[in-house]
Write a protein that binds this DNA or RNA. Structure first.
Lengths: 152, 152
DNA sequence: CCAATGAGTAGCATATTGCAACCAAAATGA
DNA sequence: TCATTTTGGTTGCAATATGCTACTCATTGG
């Protein structure tokens, strides 16, 4: 599989050298990650996404088209004819880690102690442990034990 | 430290039960995560953020204010007088995992093979290994080996 | 046949962003 | 000392993006 930058022509990057900025250019709007979240949770059809997110339909049309262009969703016309299915590509499925990180941060910081929320569980029903960046030896890393090399 | 939902009054959640949606409501706009990225990389002053991101100044003013309101940045007036410093709170620093996940996805999927990009390294200069969600026993998890419990 | 569903489009109103100019206090520097 | 620059904004206006409502047009299901 050829690995190419999925930049639909005409698109320009906010900060061409920064992977964080590129990711945000591709999926960093108000709705894209929620659409991807729902795709991961089984949504396939246009109306699935519309009902789960509550997004305006013209915007949904546009976001689905952009996500397809950008190689994150694949649009397949169902054999039955008119129905369209939007399924995650490999790049889309790989956003799982980003979604999990966002989910876990939200659980820790965006809920009052008494509030309940949905939970991500493994096949035996246990919640996933918290993601943690580490160095090559498995030692936990954070903001002040890492740095960004801006050259090369 | 009291753990309260940082919802500045008047704010309403896109999907109150979903931690992903709440995270996006708090930092999911075009600029907030880039501001946080720069804060993690040493930016403190208004003009630091303005130069690194290239964001319009009125929007920067607004985003900094919102991030402070939402408990992600702390605004401190430097002893010297006029200068303001925006520093990450504990919740802000905890977004490290989200930034790392976004960065690594971008490295994998938003660059052509020949392109170069900045790199996140540990104290000995080695790039951080890739984050991977696992279950309680350390087995790698992905989209189809997990599910979201919407109740509770 | 008739109603409902799926996947959109079109037109308009509102909200959000971006740009350029302006401003005042503090620090700098000649 | 006194002008200039830096810092951290604010204001007004233009350009974009988003959302709401109504309309299509082809299938399905009964």
């Amino acid at each position: 599989m050829a690995r190419t930058a999925p930049r639909a022509e005409g698109m320009s990057w906010t900060d061409p050298a920064c992977p964080v900025a590129r990711t945000l250019d591709l999926v960093g709007d108000r709705w894209s990650l929620l659409i991807i979240r729902d795709a991961m949770d089984g949504a396939r059809a246009f109306t699935d996404f519309q009902h789960r997110t509550g997004i305006a339909r013209n915007i949904l049309t546009d976001r689905l088209r952009r996500l397809v262009e950008r190689g994150i969703l694949d649009r397949q016309t169902a054999p039955t004819g008119r129905r369209q299915n939007y399924v995650l590509t490999e790049a889309g499925r790989d956003l799982f880690t980003v979604i999990v990180a966002a989910r876990q941060w939200g659980e820790r910081h965006a809920f009052a102690p008494a509030e309940t929320h949905s939970v991500l569980v493994d096949e035996s029903g246990l919640p996933l442990p918290e993601l943690r960046p580490t160095d090559a030896h498995g030692r936990p890393m954070d903001v002040d034990t890492t740095s960004v090399l801006h050259d090369r």
